[in-house]
Computed example of a mutant assay.
Amino acid sequence: MSVVATLGPKDTFSDMATQRYLSAQGLSSKVSYFPTLKTAFNAIGNEADWGVLPIENLSEGYVQVVLDGLMATDLFIRDEILLPIKFALVTNCQSLAEVRSLFVQFVAHGQCSEFIESLQGITIHNTQSNMESLNSLEGSKEPAAAVVPQHVLNDWRSDCFKIDNVTDFAHNQTRFLVLGKYPQKINPALAYKTTLVVRDDHDKPGVLGSIVTALSDRRINMTSIMSRPTKSQLGKYHFFIDIEGHCEQANIAAAIEQINASYQVKVLGSYQAAVV
């Protein structure tokens, strides 16, 4: 049986995305939970055969630690998953006025920032996972609250104060990547996306113009572009790019070849585009 790595513990959004993917694909892999995104990423190809990790949120943008992992990895993106995201506030007391501490995962904090900023006189404790936030609340000896995935509160104590859906955006959504050791084979009947990294290692001018020209000349739709520092020198960046289509299609292969003539291009994977 294969092993899939994801952010734990059980019932995180990463776990929900993983379970949905396993069910949709008819897979029976064992899920292995890790305490941080970095440890989960590093487990893929080692303790785990593949993994499911968040890459982008509707309101918060890209998950930087996962982008940085993709920069150095030999893994491939094999699929993507779109998951609706809702957070709720739950307490261990009977009113919000009693609360003295709030536990919230660092990414969830950004997605619920408007609500959190409205709270007065409460100390904020950032955690590594949403389930850590809930566990911290359960272990707190003072009146406290936690921002947690709404789906985990079905069995929460009915005598405690809670607020459903404290997320900033009503249609909040997170995109997850399925990562593995081998690329996905092309099926001409499917719609694909391809993710590239363009490395400007030699500090040549015009990198963005070269990328846009190579793609637009071949009518290739670029759906997103994200720069990340090389961490070797100030002012030097790599570019993550999502485009429509598969890297084996003639126009995309030609565009990659053209960009690669001046800049180092790495194909992180071509995978079936998730339905919004």
Rank of each mutant, 00 (worst) to 15 (best):
A17I: 01
Y21L: 07
L22N: 12
S23K: 12
L27V: 07
L27H: 15
S29P: 15
T36R: 07
T36A: 09
K38F: 07
A40K: 00
F41E: 06
A43C: 08
N46F: 15
N46V: 10
W50R: 00
G51Y: 00
V52H: 02
L53T: 03
I55F: 00
E60T: 03
G61C: 06
V63D: 02
V65E: 03
L70R: 03
T73P: 08
D74C: 09
K86G: 01
F87N: 05
F87V: 13
C93Q: 06
C93A: 14
L96A: 14
A97T: 12
L102A: 04
F106N: 06
V107H: 08
S118V: 04
G121Y: 15
I122D: 03
I124G: 09
H125T: 15
N126R: 09
M131T: 04
S133L: 04
K141T: 14
E142G: 13
L153D: 11
L153N: 02
D155Q: 12
W156S: 12
W156N: 14
C160M: 05
K162V: 13
N165H: 10
N165F: 04
T167S: 15
L179V: 07
L179S: 06
Y182S: 01
Y182A: 13
P188N: 15
A189I: 10
Y192F: 08
K193R: 15
K193M: 06
T194V: 02
T195F: 03
L196P: 00
V198D: 03
R199H: 12
R199T: 02
D200I: 15
D200Y: 08
D200C: 08
D200F: 03
S210M: 05
V212T: 08
T213K: 06
L215P: 01
S216A: 10
N221K: 08
N221V: 11
M222T: 11
T223S: 14
I225R: 05
T230M: 08
S232D: 10
H238L: 06
D242K: 10
I243C: 10
N251P: 14
A253Y: 12
A253C: 15
E257P: 07
E257D: 07
Q258G: 12
N260A: 08
A261L: 06
V265Q: 01
V267S: 09
L268H: 05
G269H: 00
V275K: 14
V276T: 04
V276G: 15
